[in-house]
């Protein structure tokens, strides 16, 4: 993020009773949270639930619990907000998909991402970006290819990739969220990236990109 350590200063101000610091803190992370929601929201809910609405609820939640957090900040502020957001997302999923009894493990699948869903949606996105109009016919083939490669990846590696890029997390944050040591998170990221790079190198339209 552009301003390292700035959160701490704001949290300090907040602790000193400056209400505006809270607004500022939240706004600072809002985009990332929104992106996270967009990525993790169940496909069936898109169009029915607006991530901005969920964030509004998160804002209120966070405001309520802020005092508690300030007393004993065990997590970094973003990771804490993200947790609240995920809790909200789970609630939303429950509300909409309560008929789906099998989703009892939803919490897990959202938190750690549902492996199948993630690789499928990643694959779609990658292929969509790569396919040029003249290659439309190859589109389906590409999706399958990338999908397979992602499937073969370690679940945790794939999640690291998503957190680093889609949620724009730093290595330290990834480590915190996934309960890893920084070195482990770093190595997983490099491994996932290498694997992705290998796949991409073989795809048409990638090389002439840079």
């Amino acid at each position: 993020m552009a301003l390292e350590g700035f959160d701490d200063e704001l949290i300090g101000r907040l602790g000193a009773g400056d209400e505006h610091a809270f607004v500022e803190l939240f706004s600072r992370h809002r985009q990332r949270l929104k992106r996270m929601l967009e990525f993790r929201m169940d496909g069936r809910l898109r169009g029915r639930e607006d991530p901005s609405d969920i964030l509004q609820e998160v804002y209120i939640d966070a405001h309520h619990r802020m005092g508690h957090y300030l007393k004993r900040p065990q997590l970094s502020f973003y990771v804490w907000l993200r947790q609240l957001t995920i809790q909200r997302l789970i609630d939303v999923h429950r509300r909409h998909l309560k008929a789906d009894k099998r989703d009892i493990n939803q919490e897990v699948s959202i938190n750690r991402t549902n492996p199948a869903a993630t690789s499928a949606s990643l694959a779609m996105q990658l292929a969509a970006h790569l396919a040029s109009p003249s290659q439309m016919a190859m589109h389906a083939e590409l999706v399958t290819l990338i999908h397979q490669a992602l499937e073969e990846m370690d679940e945790m590696d794939r999640e690291v990739l998503v957190l680093r890029h889609f949620e724009e997390m730093k290595n330290s944050e990834v480590a915190e969220v996934l309960g890893l040591k920084p070195a482990a998170a770093s190595n997983r990221y490099v491994r996932a990236l290498s694997r992705l790079g290998e796949i991409l190198e073989t795809l048409p339209g990638f090389h002439d990109d840079n």
Binding site: F39, L122, Q125, L196, G197, N210
Partner: peptide, 20 residues
């Protein structure tokens, strides 16, 4: 690796602009 990273960033932009 950096090339793959840029690719990931581009995919993200794609996803976001198509959302909704």
């Amino acid at each position: 690796l950096f090339r793959a990273m840029i690719a990931m960033e581009r995919f993200k932009t794609c996803t976001l602009s198509s959302y909704g």
